[in-house]
Computed example of a mutant assay.
Amino acid sequence: MYVYEFYIEHPMNYVMTGKFEAPSPNWVHEDFPLTDYELFVVTKDTLYISYNGEPFTINEGEFLLLPPLPPPNNRRKGIRPSHCSFYWLHFSIDHEVALSAIPNSRHTAYPYTVPQYTIAIPRQGKIPHAEKIVVLMKQLQDAIRSNYDSTTANYLSTTILCELYSQFYRENNVSQRSKRTQKQMYYDIIDYVKSNTDKNLKVADVAAHFCYNEKYLSHLFSNIAGIPLKQFILNVKMDAANFMLTDTNASISEIAASLGFTDSHNFAKAYKKIAGLTPTEYRNAFFKRLLYHV
């Protein structure tokens, strides 16, 4: 993926803008030289164009950003007929623009590496909310028709590029942010369960603590941990029970109470289901093993 880096502490220089609608299905983009940057935002059908010998296919809801190149490499022309519609914006800049080739595996993290007052815009991509870009393009066109000063046109042009930058990277990072958020929630659940082994903790209690739907939280945890949240809560309690059975002189009743069980019978039943032994059998077997190895 090729990405342009624009420095925007000062606005872009507006050149011209408009909307084009192909008059027929046989329309083909004419062969014209490009002397400044041009942004295409396709709103209907598909635009087929080549630039500097490279073909581009821009579908509805996608954009293409072309840079000025020295002649004769700056000619853009249609390569297939299309009954398309698109908004276009020409602008220039007063600084050099970096063009970087970013691996697809890194493009979502790339914006966080660019300098301050810099936006990174791919050469081509899908616009998550194209209608917002169209609204800004219409506002720019209205400003031009109303004879607004050049400063306004410059800032409106820059706003369009900033919106494109924000949309592209914000939306493409949603899944990554979601995964990070879910992972953090998973670790928060683990910490909460481990710090509340003395309570008769249920899945509903955990969900209520984090203000989440019980089914959603259970599904989230199970997807990451590979076991149900209810099972994890019980496993944590059993790990704590193993420690107290082998490293303390607490009675079975005291251990059961400290782990939030209503009585020692329920504790012993739950423990045997996990360990295959009663708490007393486990404690005795442990000390016999110690004695054997002394």
Rank of each mutant, 00 (worst) to 15 (best):
M1V: 07
M1R: 03
F6K: 09
Y7G: 07
P11F: 01
P11V: 00
Y14Q: 01
G18V: 07
F20Q: 00
E21Y: 12
A22R: 06
A22T: 03
A22Q: 07
P25I: 02
P25R: 04
W27M: 03
H29G: 06
D31H: 14
D31M: 11
P33M: 09
L34W: 02
D36S: 15
L39P: 08
F40K: 05
V42M: 10
K44R: 12
T46H: 03
I49V: 13
S50F: 02
G53A: 03
E54C: 06
F56M: 07
T57K: 15
G61A: 02
F63V: 04
P67R: 08
P71T: 02
R75D: 06
K77R: 10
G78K: 10
F91G: 02
I93V: 15
L99T: 05
A101I: 12
H107I: 15
V114S: 04
Q116R: 15
T118K: 10
I119E: 06
I121W: 02
P122T: 08
G125T: 00
I127H: 06
I127L: 07
A130F: 13
I133T: 05
L136M: 10
M137P: 05
Q141A: 15
A143E: 05
I144P: 04
T152W: 13
N154F: 01
N154M: 00
L156E: 02
T158D: 02
T158W: 05
T158F: 02
T159H: 14
L161K: 00
Y165W: 14
Q167R: 10
R170C: 12
E171A: 15
N172G: 10
R180E: 12
R180W: 11
Q184G: 13
M185G: 06
M185T: 04
Y186W: 08
I189G: 09
Y192S: 00
V193Y: 10
V193W: 11
S195P: 03
S195W: 09
S195Y: 08
A204Q: 10
A208D: 11
F210K: 01
C211G: 10
N213Y: 08
L220I: 08
F221R: 03
F221A: 00
A225S: 11
I227F: 09
I227H: 12
P228E: 05
L234H: 09
L234I: 13
N235I: 08
M238R: 04
A241I: 05
N242E: 09
M244V: 04
M244E: 10
T246V: 02
A250W: 12
I252Q: 04
I255E: 09
L259R: 04
S264V: 06
N266C: 08
K273W: 08
A275G: 03
G276W: 05
A285H: 11
K288P: 10
K288G: 08
L291W: 12
Y292R: 13
